[in-house]
């Protein structure tokens, strides 16, 4: 009898058929990569998923990782070294790609900070991007639905974190959807994209020139009106991050807004660290623990 619901869900699964690209044993669990046809993005998308050993016997919470500019699903799963912590705390970690791929949109591969590899986790409203570049909805709706339908997850418990552009994505997803994510954290996030070059370029490209529309995807702006359930935000920032000094990340603006709004943030400026995955790998366990604390509470 218990299997009946699964059987009834079978057509749905079929519609969102997954194709396993790779599977590797890792810390008694599996690091896998799947490919699927995204309805939201209208292209084939890959994502990495780590299944902890606990997932063999129980439903586990899911932690979504959003990568930064130029990244694919591979960067995080190969460089961050998160699997041990995830295995220890029984977290499924999902690392999607950073943009639609192979959509043959003119100019999508022209620059590294726009188009392919730079979806910026927004739903584009401008042509020619608006058909495919719907990363916000993809991350928010389609991907969780797919994951929950195909893996032993607890849909009620999910959290999100990311790096750089992904940090921006994590923050806006958490701030725009109060209660959806149990916790949020970020490595060197783009905190105030409407104020930085990367943000201006991407938001302008995807959303048009109306700056007020951009504010819906700006963490610093969003936090000013945030009135949802309390969020415990952890941010690590390398002090020697070239993009920090280049004014692309602007964490101070975010911290100021959070201080103003009494949104609790612990912001750690890590002496000597840059923007790389070496920096991420150093503090990834702190973030895993941070999320595990809320996901496993």
């Amino acid at each position: 009898m218990r299997w009946l619901p699964l059987c009834s869900a079978a057509p749905c699964v079929k519609a969102m058929a997954l194709k396993q690209v790779s599977s590797n044993r890792c810390f008694e669990g599996f690091q896998k990569v799947f490919e699927h046809d995204s309805a939201e993005l209208k292209c084939k998308m890959k994502f990495g998923i780590y299944l902890p050993p606990k997932a063999e016997t129980a439903k586990c919470p899911v932690l979504y990782w959003l990568s930064g500019l130029t990244c694919t699903e591979q960067n995080f799963i190969t460089k961050a070294g998160f699997q041990q912590g995830a295995a220890e705390h029984g977290l499924i970690v999902v690392a999607p790609d950073t943009s639609p791929r192979g959509c043959n949109i003119e100019g999508e591969d022209e620059s590294w900070d726009f188009g392919t590899g730079a979806g910026f986790y927004v739903d584009a409203t401008e042509e020619p991007w608006k058909t495919n570049y719907r990363m916000y909805s993809y991350i928010k709706d389609e991907l969780p639905k797919l994951i929950n339908a195909n893996f032993p997850t607890d849909p009620e418990r999910m959290s999100i974190f990311g790096h750089s552009m992904g940090g921006h994505g994590a923050l806006i997803l958490a701030l725009k959807n109060p209660g959806k994510y149990k916790s949020v954290s970020a490595f060197a996030p783009i905190c105030n994209p409407i104020q930085c070059q990367w943000g201006k370029k991407a938001l302008g490209g995807y959303l048009g020139s109306d700056v007020s529309k951009w504010e819906a995807y700006d963490a610093t702006q969003l936090v000013k009106s945030y009135a949802g359930s309390p969020l415990d935000i952890l941010i690590d920032q390398g002090k020697d991050d070239q993009f920090l000094s280049a004014g692309q990340l602007l964490p101070d603006n975010f911290i100021a807004a959070c201080t103003e709004q009494k949104v609790p943030v612990v912001f750690r400026l890590q002496q000597g660290y840059d923007h790389s995955y070496f920096f991420i790998a150093t503090f990834i366990n702190d973030h895993i623990k941070h999320h595990a604390k809320y996901l496993n509470a």
């Binding site: 911290i255 009494k262 612990v266 912001f267 750690r268 400026l269 890590q270």
Partner: peptide
């Protein structure tokens, strides 16, 4: 001391 900001 580490450099840590606490907003609240």
């Amino acid at each position: 001391t580490p450099d840590i900001r606490i907003t609240l």
